[in-house]
């Protein structure tokens, strides 16, 4: 009789095998076949709850096949299934059947980032009034960081528009413009509310610079350098209002 460790090693191998004929499998061990089905189904559902737009774009059947291939290739490592799926965008990028949708992987990155923002540690963001109360020279030397519940997203495709179109009920894709237009966005969660705010090129340069440890003055210079159309006052007002900043520790 196999030891418990041997028994579980056999089950592990069977649960993680991709290419077995399911009906043959069920005849050998119905219990194992049912549990494998449970494993794949529950884990696929977890992925679908995070990657809803990806699923909508490819259809349920395609998503199920792609999710199964991913689950077998990179199965969950922790019982906290909320944390599962970080590798899915990369997997999609290298999944040949999805090759006709070059933007699909970026949609997955976007949805994963949004999921992370929703679950990130709570933090008190600086209020817009904090900035308006500072003298200009103090402002310029401020060292800011994004709160944990804020992320910057960028893609060479119109990912944010595609995602927004899939949020409408019923889904309305008629207003979508060309797909190969770059998108930049800030995701931020405050008071339980998740917002996605489109960014100009300059704003993206500005937030990246802050994230890289530059002070506010230097970040502004970098934004102007990268985007001559950067409107300092307008962007400062807009970004302060998103309440995405905290003082860097």
């Amino acid at each position: 009789m196999p030891s418990l460790a041997e028994y579980q090693a056999t089950w592990r191998d069977a649960l993680l095998t991709q290419d077995r004929d399911d009906s043959e499998f069920a005849a050998v061990s119905p219990a194992l076949a049912i549990h494998k089905n449970n494993f794949l189904f529950a884990t696929r559902e977890a992925l679908a709850s995070v990657f809803g737009t990806v699923s909508a774009l490819v259809g349920e059947e395609f998503f199920a096949a792609m999710a199964k291939a991913f689950i077998i290739a990179e199965p969950p490592t922790s019982p906290v299934i909320l944390d599962y799926g970080s590798g899915f965008p990369g997997f999609i990028a290298n999944f040949p059947p999805a090759g006709t949708l070059p933007y699909l992987s970026d949609i997955a990155v976007f949805e994963w980032d949004l999921h992370q923002v929703a679950l990130a540690a709570d933090a008190q963001a600086l209020e817009p009034s904090f900035f308006s109360a500072q003298a200009v020279e103090t402002l310029l030397s401020l060292e800011l960081a994004l709160i944990p519940g804020a992320r910057i997203f960028q893609s060479k495709f119109a990912v944010v528009d595609i995602w927004r179109a899939h949020k409408s009920v019923p889904v309305d894709l008629t207003s979508l413009g060309p797909i190969d237009v770059a998108s930049r966005a800030l995701m931020v969660r405050n008071d339980g509310l998740l917002s996605v705010i489109s960014l100009t090129k300059g704003e993206k340069f500005f937030l990246d610079a802050l994230n890289n440890g530059e002070d506010l003055g230097t970040a502004t210079a970098i934004a102007l350098d990268g985007d001559p159309a950067y409107d300092i006052l307008e962007s400062n007002r807009k970004l302060a209002a998103t309440r995405c900043f905290q003082l860097r520790e």
Partner: peptide, 20 residues
């Protein structure tokens, strides 16, 4: 058992009832 060998199987898996 739900995980083993570094993988979480997201299901309640059975095991034989033995003294061991």
């Amino acid at each position: 058992w739900t995980s083993s060998g570094g993988t979480f199987f997201n299901d309640l898996l059975p095991f034989p009832y033995t003294q061991a």
